[in-house]
Amino acid sequence: MSKIVRTVANQLILFIFIFGLYIIIHGHITPGGGFQGGAVIASGAALMIVAFGSSRIQKGIKEKHLSILESSGAVIFIGLAFAGLAAAGVFFFNTLIGSPVFGHTPPTGPNPGDIWTGGIIPLMNVAVGLKVFAGLSAIILVMALASSGEEVEE
């Protein structure tokens, strides 16, 4: 794309990533969560691919790396679910409630919010966010490469 698009993308990309990370990490306090934040970060990746061209992006990030990220997100998610099964005998049991890590419980009703609440919910948000970001970015990258006539390096 033109120099204007590349310059603006260069400036914006950091803020898009930070906003997506904020949505993922505060998913248990404010509206949002893993899916939404992952989609925001993937939109930043789409901006990079559109601005700089898929072949130039592919020198740094290959489809293989994104697939590994997505699979690790899925493994973390299912592993947390099985942790509940191992600790309490219930699949998806919230095992971290009461522990010092993410274990606080807020009072019922409106309250200022606390990052150390939610049990396994913040961890699952991070796992799902990683998975959605990597999955959508892989789809966009592979499609952009195919439409520009380049071959996907695996």
Partner: peptide, 23 residues
Amino acid sequence: QAETGANNVVAAVLFDYRGFDTL
């Protein structure tokens, strides 16, 4: 809020009460 510790009740339903749906 008391059971899952999450202020965002939507996240609590998605990841705790109905985890299978998210899976």
